[in-house]
Simulated assay, not measured.
Amino acid sequence: MFSTVEWTTFFPAALLVAAAPGANQLLSLRNGLRHGRTPAVSASPGRFTPFALMIIAVAAGLGAVLAASEAAFNIIKWCGVVYLLWLGLRTLVTAFRQRSATGWAAPSSEQRDVGASHQDEARSWRLARQEFLVAVSNPKALILFTVFLPQFLGRDADTMATPLLLLGTAYIAVEFFCACGYAALGSRLRSMGITRRARRILDALTGITILGLAGWLATEQH
């Protein structure tokens, strides 16, 4: 089973693909900068539910069918474009609101304690939901798994389903490793005590990049 997969070539290729600064990785960077490493890392599995479903679909042979459907591709594509536009614009608005803020008062210890657990839980769900929506609304991810994973099956593979599931599981592990790296980078920038102006600039750059990804996705042809 393991011998039917070309692992030595798969892991470097998967690392390059997963480390590319896509929308989900930019979210991990932004969440690490705004909320810290732990919330950002705990939110990143939100993207893996759609990834796992896509991998199962590919292993079952449904991935190629869905990827070949122009109507399904366009529906998912435009849902992704709309959501990325909304997320990018919201990020830019957040950056400009921070710019217009005249002051900020640190909450007291009593204020921090009241409802802190509830707020943390609500924040975790919100961040994980963002990760989920970005991943599920990207049709290129399904095509990536349909085209990318089978390249690393050995010629002696008599069945594709189980090796594809193994490859998909390994890719998710690599993706999680890279997400942790982006979250750690954002958290590191946060711990360095960067100025509010620098945080605004990073938020603005993230928003512009997400808007650029929305434009790229809108121009992609099936």
Rank of each mutant, 00 (worst) to 15 (best):
M1R: 00
F2Q: 05
S3P: 11
V5A: 06
W7E: 06
T9E: 13
F11D: 11
P12M: 11
A13Y: 06
A14H: 00
L16F: 14
L16W: 10
V17K: 01
A19L: 09
A20E: 05
G22F: 05
A23K: 02
N24D: 10
Q25H: 13
N31P: 07
N31R: 00
G32C: 11
R34Y: 11
H35D: 13
T38R: 09
V41E: 02
S42A: 11
S44W: 07
P45E: 05
G46K: 02
F48D: 03
A57L: 13
A57M: 04
V58H: 02
A59S: 13
G61A: 11
V65K: 01
A67K: 01
A68H: 00
S69Q: 01
E70N: 00
A71C: 11
A72P: 05
F73E: 00
F73S: 03
N74K: 00
I76E: 05
W78K: 01
V81S: 04
V82T: 08
V82G: 10
L84M: 09
W86R: 01
V93H: 10
V93F: 12
F96S: 06
Q98G: 10
S100D: 11
A101V: 12
A101H: 04
A105Y: 01
A106D: 07
E110S: 11
E110M: 13
Q111I: 15
Q111D: 09
G115V: 14
A116K: 08
S117V: 14
H118Q: 09
S124E: 12
W125M: 08
W125R: 05
W125E: 10
A128Q: 03
F132R: 00
V134C: 14
A135Q: 04
V136T: 01
P139S: 07
K140D: 13
A141I: 07
L142N: 03
L142A: 07
L144A: 06
F145T: 00
V147G: 06
L149V: 14
F152L: 10
F152S: 02
R155P: 15
T159R: 03
A161I: 14
A161D: 08
L164C: 02
L165D: 02
T169A: 15
Y171F: 15
E175N: 02
E175C: 13
C178I: 10
A179W: 03
A179P: 05
G181R: 02
L185M: 08
G186Y: 03
R190P: 09
R190V: 15
M192Q: 07
I194L: 10
I194Q: 03
R196N: 12
R196G: 14
R196V: 12
R197H: 14
R199C: 11
R200Q: 15
A204M: 01
A204V: 02
L205H: 04
L205G: 12
G207N: 02
G207F: 12
T209S: 14
T209Q: 00
L211R: 00
G212E: 06
G215S: 06
H222D: 01
